[in-house]
Write a protein that binds this DNA or RNA. Structure first.
Lengths: 253, 253
DNA sequence: TATTCAAAAGGTATCAGATAAGTTTGGGAG
DNA sequence: CTCCCAAACTTATCTGATACCTTTTGAATA
């Protein structure tokens, strides 16, 4: 390569394009003054307001849509979206897809965050928060005793809901977002890995019992016990996942 | 208002627009077959390939840019970006901005993740990983003994670099991404809170000593000790942050 | 021959004007 | 009062041009 003599390439103009400027301005406006569900002004009006063409407005709005700030639909004005972890979920999914090492990493981090969620939930959960956890658990019980097709899917959904309810009951919004962000790639990764690898090491009843221990600890307000119960449960789950995943180790797609 | 009689509004068509379809297809192509730094085909060529107008291509690419998948610059073709946590960082920044409760949440989660990082780093750090941590620490020492203006900024940067190096040394990519994602909003939030609240509870030398204890434990490969040292350090830092933040409690901008 | 610099070529950014197609709304028919 | 349809509104996409930025090329110069 040789020695770098000049250093004028250091400048990153950060694209001061009109569309970008408008997008940034709109983003600030949305975050500061608008609530989820609110509608942006029409493209024509924005074009007039910013004194640019409608095309520039469109591109700016597309930028925001890519960032997950607004939702677009033909014939309707752009709507401000409820913030959620989906942007990061997309990111994780794309970075980790067909990469079993990445999924191990995800499982590892999830363990830590969920233990923290359970610990905090035991300390802080409101009556409503506990009710939500109970409700998810009851859903699992119902799905277990049901025999119809789709019962297992329902079981899994309530399972995820149980964990999500705990994340929410922690009272820590960041934990909620992170849970959401990790749930999608995890589920997808696990689903992929399970193909042709049906057996689970545990019965549904075992899973329910483990969840009951967690819920009881949270109900008691026993933070340490809740964290331990969650850790124990996830350790178990983790090994299931690992065996499922390992059939793909070094087998990217 | 009145009672909802019909229920055909439940359908979310997920915008199967041309621009969206192209964006999704491009995203898959990028993730599956392209590396960071690679250049997308020109807009004209893509327009031809997908049989849509150049405008539609532009909007699709803007969507990808918003998602952080590509980087745009005038006169140059779109470039595939190195994946990083910046999308989630933006999200967190926007959700938590001017909200001290959110920053508390962030600090809380960070504690948990960094303790895990230190624990894992002690178990797995490579020679190079440890060298990176050492280098950051040395930077802190240099900055502390320097007297020039800007030394304190340098110190803080190396401080962040130290923690980042540990997250990377954990060998868990998800931890790396999350660290990145949380660093920006945290720093920003803290900076804001510090305005007019100069005093820190600890000297730079104290901070260095705490970091040395962490590094030593990682070098020894003592996972528990590393985690504890990190927890202890962050508990300290946390209380600094809390006092800084509390001046803003219930004071959203 | 090697260096330099300016023009050409290749690209993106933005504009203007139109058409197609989906959504919402308000009035009229039953 | 309810239901349906057309007008008004709005977004999605197309076409064709112009402006401006980057990279490359090629010729003039030292």
């Amino acid at each position: 390569m040789g020695v770098r003599t000049i250093s004028s390439e250091e400048i990153r103009p950060d694209q001061p394009s009109a569309a970008n400027a408008v997008a940034d301005h709109l983003a600030r406006m949305i975050l500061n003054t608008m609530s989820p569900g609110a509608l942006l002004p029409s493209e024509a009006e924005l074009a007039e307001r910013y004194e640019v063409s409608r095309l520039t407005i469109r591109e700016a709005v597309k930028l925001l849509a890519g960032r997950g700030l607004v939702e677009l639909a033909r014939g309707r004005r752009a709507m401000v979206r409820e913030p959620d972890g989906s942007a990061f979920a997309d990111f994780l999914t794309s970075v980790l897809h067909n990469d079993s090492k990445g999924l191990f990493d995800l499982v590892e981090v999830r363990m830590s965050l969920e233990v923290q969620s359970a610990t905090l939930a035991a300390k802080r959960a409101s009556r409503a928060g506990i009710a939500a956890i109970e409700s998810a658990l009851q859903g699992m019980r119902d799905a277990e005793s049901a025999q119809d097709e789709g019962a297992e899917d329902r079981f899994h959904n309530f399972d995820v809901g149980f964990h999500e309810a705990i994340a929410l009951a922690s009272g820590n919004r960041v934990l909620g977002y992170l849970f959401e962000a990790m749930a999608a790639p995890l589920r997808q990764g696990i689903q992929i890995s399970r193909r042709g690898h049906a057996g689970r090491g545990h019965t549904l009843a075992d899973t329910i019992a483990a969840h009951e221990r967690i819920l009881d600890a949270i109900r008691e307000g026993n933070a340490r016990k809740a964290g331990d119960a969650m850790r124990f449960h996830l350790k178990d789950t983790e090994s299931d996942i690992r065996t499922a995943l390992s059939s793909f180790a070094g087998n990217p797609v």
